[in-house]
């Protein structure tokens, strides 16, 4: 075991898979000598050579196309999109092309690409860096979407993502990159995609969440515990596909649920989770399933972001509505 931040765990996962499989290639803007703007690829070019860890011209669509083409020649590309707000520049390569490659080629070709990208609020970025755009990705059949909330999960999930035979969007919350360390096994391990993690068991309420909101939800759960409420917190980890079994088992146990996401309320993951609970466990419910989300505006300029973003207090307030319904 070693104490690692999430960014260190991500580098460790990349190193592990580059050692395991010579077809793994890491590329993107400034990922080579510079080690990436967040240092996620720190030291990798030195260790594996410019041939396998390389800078690209500054063009996201080109990066996406490069990944698709390299995959067709049998590589496992792990491109970085420098900030996920730049994904609009590469939407066709992602949603229009790699997500459909297996399907439109009658199963002959595939796109085993893992796109890594930082996102998430609370770090005062300029526009189009912090936006939670996972809902756009999750709506695209053919993709898987993973959002880790801890260093240990980040490593195991990233290794699984790279090994997955379909394209995976791997979103890394910037605020979690260096916010805490935890024990991370130095050896290789995987965490199955599509499996949620019960972070905290409880019997009165299920909080279903992912990403940075896992930590706000855990804070809320502790506070609620002090007031006598036993709260379960589920970290989805993969938001496409959802771990329906874990969600439904929890709701059937607690009979009350809220869904917490950093993204805006309209459409999105929380809506999907509520709909799945409605489809599968409505008769277990003692109260409506409510959502804690940001407002339906675009991501605010940085002076307003701390108010805009949901926090533990918002979670507690909504949780109480459901508990007291």
């Amino acid at each position: 075991m070693a104490q690692m931040t999430m960014i260190q765990a991500i580098t460790d996962a990349l190193r592990t898979e580059m050692k395991n499989d010579e077809n793994v290639l890491v590329f993107g803007e400034d990922v080579g000598l510079n080690g990436g703007v967040f240092r996620a690829t720190e030291g990798l070019q030195k260790e594996f050579g410019e041939d396998r860890v390389f800078d690209t011209p500054l063009a996201e669509s080109g990066i996406g196309g490069l990944a698709i083409g390299l995959a067709l020649e049998g590589y496992r590309p792990v491109p970085e999109i420098q900030f996920f707000g730049f994904v609009f520049e590469v939407m066709d390569s992602v949603s229009g092309q790699m997500a459909r490659m297996r399907y439109r080629s009658g199963g002959k070709y595939s796109s085993p690409v893992t796109i890594r990208s930082p996102f998430g609020g609370g770090v005062h970025t300029p526009e189009l860096h912090a936006d939670s755009l996972e809902g756009l990705m999750a709506q695209q059949p053919g993709l898987k979407v993973v959002i880790p909330s801890t260093p240990k999960d980040a490593k195991g999930l990233l290794i699984s993502a790279i090994r997955d035979n379909d394209p995976v969007i791997f979103l890394e919350h910037m605020k979690l990159y260096r916010s805490f360390r935890e024990d991370v096994p130095e050896e290789e391990y995987t965490i199955e995609l599509g499996k949620a993690d019960v972070k905290r068991e409880g019997t009165d309420l299920s909080i279903i969440t992912y990403g940075a909101m896992v930590h706000e939800s855990l804070k809320a759960a502790e506070a609620l515990e002090k007031e006598g409420h036993s709260v379960e917190v589920i970290d989805l980890r993969t938001i496409q596909p959802l771990d329906i079994e874990t969600i439904i088992a929890s709701v059937e146990k607690t009979n009350r649920a809220i869904v917490v996401q950093e993204a805006q309320k309209q459409a999105g993951i929380a809506s999907s989770v509520v709909a799945e609970i409605n489809d599968r466990a409505i008769l277990s419910l003692e109260a409506p399933v409510l959502r804690v989300t940001a407002a339906d505006t675009v991501f605010p300029f940085s002076q307003a972001e701390s108010v805009w973003l949901p926090n533990a207090k918002d979670v507690i307030a909504t949780a109480k509505k459901v508990l007291e319904f």
């Binding site: 669509s61 080109g62 996406g64 196309g65 490069l66 990944a67 698709i68 083409g69 390299l70 995959a71 067709l72 020649e73 049998g74 590589y75 066709d92 390569s93 229009g96 092309q97 439109r104 080629s105 009658g106 199963g107 002959k108 070709y109």
Partner: peptide
């Protein structure tokens, strides 16, 4: 669209230009 093995062709591209970036990737491969 399922071309035979050994025939290295992609299905006809509908999005104008998308084939250009993919070709750069195949060629690098």
């Amino acid at each position: 669209n399922k071309s035979p093995e050994g025939v290295n062709v992609l299905p006809p591209q509908i999005i104008i230009g998308a084939q250009y970036v993919q070709t750069a990737g195949i060629a690098l491969g």
